[in-house]
Design a protein around this nucleic acid. Structure first.
Length: 367
DNA sequence: GTACTCGTGCACTTTACATCA
DNA sequence: AGTGATGTAAAGTGCACGAGT
């Protein structure tokens, strides 16, 4: 006896997996009204200069990872020279650490929490203007922080600051915190020229990037530069953020798919258990019923609504045992977790359907 | 057509930082 | 208050691929 079990076609008849329609999902547009009114011409722009500098900086970072400490010092000097060579003179961080609570050499800072609610966690280096102080500005509460020696920060951190334009100083109450954090980072650089900088984005920056991501999950170079300029970030930061964001999206989608497959597996396991039970009943009837061999060939199919075996057709159905299954699947494409399993019992012998179910069942089991 | 460079995306990994027990 | 474990996000690294030359 041969049991042909055809299950619902999850790939075609049900919800397609996210990883199979990834591209379409990722390119779906949601109009959130995000608009960047920035036009960047095709010519070489200062932003492109930034990008070039960033490239060099990146390669410098790469070499930092492999060079010795002496080489790192040389790199630091090189960066310093690069920063000094820029037409926009670098703004020297001149800040005093406030609460040096060392845990290790690399990050020996207890970062203060911003009290404006905007950056409740982390150091928002991108609000550097609050931390960058020209002493001739006479802002006492900020200037008070300006006491660390010059040339202390020689990494890309300093270069980053050179790229940014000053914004308003309305958040003076956070300046001490931010300056302290910036200073701490600068201090780290003093101790370790190759200290890696991890720049936490502010909530505003993250929200802006999130909106932009909803608009388009990949960036053209122009969009990247525009975003970077808008948010006072390096283009590389914007690029990395989008890469990480895509990775997070994919990871979440994978989790959703996994959950979906798990539910499918549970459903099919239950279905399999039930079909085994049906099969046992059929075998029991086969052995007990003397008229089993005398009945015409019949295909048994599973009614999707009542989940019971029903007769469908005679010899033609037996010749093409998957026909009824296909029909059932086509009628049950909406919910992939529903009982869409079609059962087709094909046998070389005539089959016997033991139930009187089909005579009273309102459904049409065949087409 | 082939080799090369360049830019970009992605997977994987590392690391800095925040949070919590 | 200090500390270790843990999670998360930013960033590094290497590879693949397509476009341009």
């Amino acid at each position: 006896m041969e049991l042909g079990l055809s299950l619902g076609d999850a790939g075609t008849a049900s919800k397609p997996f996210g990883f199979m329609e990834k591209s379409s999902k990722l390119t779906s547009k949601t109009n959130l009204g995000f608009c960047m009114g920035l036009s960047i011409g095709p010519n070489h722009t200062p932003q492109e200069d930034d990008q070039d500098k960033e490239k060099r900086s990146n390669s410098d970072h790469k070499s930092d990872n492999t060079n010795t400490s002496a080489a790192a010092a040389a790199e630091a000097n090189k960066r310093k020279n690069m920063a000094e060579d820029t037409t926009d003179s670098p703004i020297q961080l001149d800040l005093l650490p406030n609460t040096p609570v060392p845990r290790n050499q690399n990050h020996s800072v207890t970062y203060l929490v911003s009290d404006n609610g905007n950056t409740s966690r982390g150091f928002d280096v991108n609000r550097f203007p609050a931390a960058v102080v020209h002493e001739d500005q006479g802002d006492q509460d900020v200037a008070a922080l300006s006491s660390s020696p010059p040339n202390s920060a020689t990494s890309s951190f300093q270069m980053d600051f050179c790229m940014y334009s000053s914004k308003g100083r309305s958040e003076s109450h956070n300046e001490a915190d931010q300056a302290e954090r910036a200073s701490s980072r600068a201090s780290d650089e003093d101790e370790n020229g190759s200290a890696r900088k991890k720049l936490r984005l502010s909530k505003e920056q993250s929200a802006f990037l999130e909106e932009s991501f909803k608009e388009h999950n990949t960036l053209t170079p122009k969009q990247k530069l525009a975003l970077a300029k808008e948010l006072n970030l390096r283009p590389r930061q914007v690029e990395v953020w989008f890469q990480n964001r895509r990775a997070r999206t994919k990871l979440k989608q994978t989790e959703v798919d996994c959950e979906y497959l798990k539910r499918c597996c549970e459903t099919l396991t239950e279905e399999n258990r039930r079909l085994h039970k049906e099969l046992q009943e059929l075998r029991a009837l086969k052995t007990s019923n003397p008229f089993y061999m005398q009945l015409p060939a019949t295909t048994l199919t599973m009614c999707p609504s009542c989940e019971r075996v029903a007769t469908t057709s005679t010899s033609t159905a037996a010749a093409t045992p998957t026909a009824t299954t296909t029909t059932n699947n086509q009628n049950n494409t909406a919910d992939p977790t529903s009982k869409t399993t079609g059962l087709s019992l094909s046998s070389t012998r005539p089959r016997f359907y033991p139930f009187s179910h089909t005579q009273t069942h309102p459904h049409q089991h065949t087409s």
